[in-house]
């Protein structure tokens, strides 16, 4: 029998997606079954160098996690950051509607995982404990960003109070 003759040494796309999701802070505490569902619902997209995954001002409809390669974060035509393997852009898009504040463009050939809100959010909503865990993780991120902001303000780089 062909199937039994061949040992399955290569992982399938679902297992690879699962590995990527498990490493994302948003989903790190989620149950295995839900993570498998989300891995099933993700989409793979490959970008050639120079190709934009999304552009500033476009409606943000999902998060982008980099599996391999490097993506440049651009604002006003200027590179302001880098997204490399294992990093994720747009985690908040899973919960709410907004427009991208920056353009994400492949610097090298990049293999990405797309987490569409329309696919992922209903699964989280169906499991309130999981949704709460994602919300907790997001709140911690916001606290962290605010702290960074306030620290920069102390150096005189910016003005105004923090978010919290």
């Amino acid at each position: 029998m062909i199937l039994s003759e061949q040992p399955e040494t290569h992982e399938c796309e679902l297992d690879c997606n699962l590995r990527v999701l498990r490493d994302l802070p948003f989903f790190s505490g989620q149950p295995q079954e839900l993570l498998r569902v989300m891995a099933y619902l993700c989409e793979r997209e490959t970008y050639a160098p120079g190709q934009a995954a999304f552009e500033a001002g476009q409606p943000a409809e999902g998060a982008v996690a980099v599996i391999t390669g490097t993506m440049a974060i651009e604002r006003g035509g200027r590179k302001v950051g880098t997204l490399s393997t294992g990093m994720c852009a747009g985690g908040l898009t899973l919960l709410g509607h907004y427009r991208w504040l920056y353009t994400l463009r492949a610097e090298t050939a990049a293999d990405c995982l797309l987490l569409h809100r329309r696919r992922i959010l209903p699964q989280l909503v169906a499991q309130p404990a999981s949704l709460a865990a994602v919300a907790r993780e997001l709140a911690e991120s916001v606290v962290y960003w605010d702290l960074q902001r306030l620290e920069r303000a102390a150096d005189g780089d910016m003005y105004g109070p923090g978010l919290l």
Binding site: I2, V37, Y40, A126
Partner: peptide, 27 residues
């Protein structure tokens, strides 16, 4: 026979995910 065997592998890997998930069109 080979394909029935493979169909069983696909069913075993797919159905538990579909059963566990919230039933949406996207699924």
């Amino acid at each position: 026979r080979i394909l029935i065997d493979f169909g069983a592998v696909v069913a075993t890997a797919t159905i538990p995910i579909l059963r566990y998930a919230a039933q949406t069109q996207e699924l």
